[in-house]
């Protein structure tokens, strides 16, 4: 066992870990932050996406030890300070971009990373960026629409509402 320290959602966090402890395990088990989910074991589904030093990573494919000293942001850190939903979160609710909610944390974190890099993505760019985030409920329609809306697009003309 060894000690690891990092900043999670602006607060310092530390704990005892093994070499094999994944970042997602540290978040869920050491810190009790269960918003970050595990949906696969081959680094594909993206339910575990968090930001490490501002970059989207799969927390199931990174050791906690590798996040020593890093600045980590999870879904628990995405709301506004007053507790209201952040822009992307609110767009997901407004446009029904989630159903069972299991992939949602990863979707929101990926969407946030995309919009940080590219504040005005096209539909094609959004769909391409979500290659590593699998949703089984929504058929992606309302996820893509929500991200477009969060980016300020007029989504009223998108088919079906």
């Amino acid at each position: 066992m060894s000690q690891v320290s990092m900043t999670v959602n602006g607060k310092s966090a530390s704990g005892e870990i093994e070499g094999r402890t994944l970042l997602v395990e540290f978040l869920r088990e050491n810190l009790g932050m269960t918003g970050t989910h595990v949906g696969c074991d081959t680094s594909q589904c993206g339910a575990c996406v968090v930001h490490v030093d501002g970059k989207a990573v799969k927390a199931c494919t990174m050791f906690a030890a590798e996040a020593e000293g890093a600045n980590v942001t999870t879904i628990e850190g995405m709301a506004n300070e007053d507790g209201s939903l952040g822009t992307i979160q609110q767009a997901f609710q407004d446009h029904h971009g989630l159903q069972c909610g299991f992939c949602t944390p990863g979707m929101v974190m990926s969407a946030a990373a995309l919009l940080a890099d590219n504040p005005n993505p096209s539909e094609v760019e959004i769909r391409d960026y979500l290659e590593g985030n699998i949703c089984r409920c929504t058929g992606y329609h309302n996820i893509v629409k929500a991200i477009m809306a969060a980016a300020g697009h007029d989504v009223s003309k998108i088919a079906a509402e």
């Binding site: 290659e131 985030n133 089984r136 893509v144 998108i158 088919a159 079906a160």
Partner: peptide, 17 residues
């Protein structure tokens, strides 16, 4: 695994009417 079982992703589908 998802390496061989092909799950639909966002770029496999269009907006639906």
């Amino acid at each position: 695994s998802y390496m061989d079982y092909a799950m639909p992703r966002a770029d496999d589908v269009p907006f639906y009417a």
